Amino acid sequence: MSGIVNAISAFASWLLSIVGKAFLALWDLLTDLCVGVADLFFTALAALVVSIPAPDFLTSHGLQSAFSQMSGDVLYFLGVFNVGPGIAMLGSAFAFRMLRKVVTLFQW
């Protein structure tokens, strides 16, 4: 009698493990599906942002045109005071700050 109970118990545990594995496989499928949908959404959002044209005031003026209109004395002092590398350093600091905020999900 105990042999039959042991066989039924072994079969039940095997069946439970199969159901558990099927549930895990279904869960993995659903998470992959969610990741795929999010990827499609963000790809479409990126395409939408890229399709927005730049405003005219951004395309007609730039730092190169502003620096080319300055006199030689002003350009000399801009070079002595390292304004170009300073602007690059400010830009990289701002980019690092924004990246840090994105990586920590705007919590820091």
Score class of each variant (00 low, 15 high):
A38K: 07
W14Q: 15
S13T: 12
I4K: 02
V50H: 05
S17P: 00
T43D: 02
A47H: 05
V80H: 08
L99F: 08
V102Y: 11
K101G: 14
L24C: 03
L99H: 12
Y76S: 06
M1I: 02
D32G: 06
L29M: 10
P53E: 07
F96A: 13
L75W: 01
A44H: 10
F94G: 03
A12V: 13
M70D: 03
W108E: 10
V103L: 11
L90C: 07
Q69T: 12
C34D: 08
A12H: 10
I4G: 00
A46T: 06
S92C: 00
F81A: 12
A22M: 14
V50D: 12
L24I: 03
L63F: 08
L105C: 11
M89V: 10
L58C: 06
V19M: 15
R97E: 08
I52M: 02
S17Y: 05
W108A: 06
V103N: 06
I52S: 01
T43W: 00
L63V: 07
T31V: 13
G62C: 02
S65K: 13
A12K: 11
V74C: 05
G20A: 08
G91N: 04
D56I: 12
F81Q: 09
F42D: 10
R97N: 09
S9R: 10
Q69V: 14
